[in-house]
């Protein structure tokens, strides 16, 4: 067997194990919560004045999740439903299913965050590398670092509030909240796309600038560290051009930890930038989770958490898979 295949299988087994445990915990925790979630749904439905369908709902749930059997039967039924993509019904938005809600929220979050996270990473890494390389010799970069530090320390939601105040309230250039204007119907038309981009600029900016600071500082310190390595001195002795030494020797090596950081950050985006989404009422995963928590919508909380765990695990798995290609020193397990 090729060593990479063996390595891959090992990682895959770990991945499967972690996911299984995540699902197990996600299954157990709601069952430890006192009270009966289905009764809660019924109560809520009654409050809303719905009298029809209550009994059927109880029956459907019992059938679907084997609620009358022992815990193992229930777990098997839960897994079966999970594989079908069924995470149950939302309490607050009955009869919408959890899957439907996630399906609606996920694209907004991924769209907003994948772009900002990747952009922040690229810009932050490049600026950080230049700042670390020029270092003390350059006055300009000396002033940039403290700014980056300030921006990386400001919590992103605080920055979001500041942005809203400045650019939506004082100078109303951008809309205050939402992902698109009320009354617009989501479609692939230009006017809708422009509207979406206009709405996404402030939330994107708040995340971009604060996470940019972090990537900048981390890359800067990596480059400063690598500058002292023997292979950099050697590259200089070889008479290589400065830009070759910076990008092909220093930056290339600093990219290793930086890539790990990016992958983990990408795994986390599925959870949404919770507070940013709250500040901007942005209908992504964070907003969904926030609303689910305030309305005690257990099935939705459970569903969102499961998706987050899966995303983080998958990101970690992906980095394990690609790491041997970016760092030749990584060995595929036993030699």
């Amino acid at each position: 067997m090729h060593p990479y295949v063996r390595y891959l299988l090992g990682r895959l087994a770990t991945y499967a194990g972690v996911v299984f445990f995540a699902i197990l915990i996600n299954f157990i925790i709601p069952r430890m919560i006192p009270g009966d979630p289905i009764k809660m749904i019924l109560g809520k439905l009654l409050l809303q004045g719905t009298k029809v369908g209550g009994e059927e709902l109880v029956e459907a749930y019992k059938r679907m999740f084997g609620l009358e059997g022992d815990i193992w039967t229930q777990f098997v039924c839960y897994l079966r439903e999970l594989l079908r993509g069924n995470l149950g019904y939302s309490i607050a938005n009955f009869p919408a299913t959890v899957m439907e809600l996630i399906h609606m929220a996920l694209p907004w979050t991924i769209g907003l965050l994948s772009v900002t996270v990747v952009l922040a990473w690229i810009i932050g890494s490049i600026l950080g590398a230049l700042a670390g390389w020029k270092g003390a010799e350059s006055k300009v970069w000396g002033y940039v670092a403290p700014f980056a530090l300030v921006f990386s320390i400001i919590p992103y939601y605080m920055f979001a509030v500041i942005l809203v105040f400045l650019l939506a309230y004082l100078i109303p250039i951008f809309p205050m909240s939402g992902a698109y204007s009320i009354g617009m119907i989501p479609s692939l038309s230009w006017s809708f796309i422009v509207d979406v981009i206009r709405h996404s600029i402030l939330p994107a900016l708040s995340i971009l600038i604060t996470s940019l600071g972090w990537w900048f500082l981390s890359m800067r310190s990596l480059i400063i560290m690598i500058k002292g390595e023997d292979y950099i001195l050697m590259a200089e002795a070889k008479g290589l051009k400065e830009k070759t030494i910076l990008w092909s020797y220093a930056f290339r090596n600093a990219m290793l930890p930086q890539t790990t950081g990016l992958t983990l950050a990408l795994g986390n985006i599925v959870g949404g930038a919770l507070l940013t989404e709250i500040v901007f009422a942005y209908p992504g995963m964070g907003w969904l989770l926030y609303n689910a928590i305030t309305s005690l919508d257990y099935p939705v909380i459970q569903g969102v958490v499961l998706i987050i765990i899966l995303a983080v695990c998958t990101a970690t798995f992906i980095i394990d898979m690609i790491y041997p290609f970016i760092d030749p020193r990584i060995r595929y397990g036993a030699e």
Binding site: D230, M234, A235, E236, A237, G239, I326
Partner: peptide, 24 residues
């Protein structure tokens, strides 16, 4: 100086262990 390095004067450093770029 840069264009003269290695072409006319090359250097073998004290610690060859780390003198090569590990990812190239």
């Amino acid at each position: 100086l840069r264009s003269l390095r290695w072409k006319y004067i090359s250097y073998i450093p004290q610690s060859s262990m780390n003198a090569l770029n590990p990812v190239k």
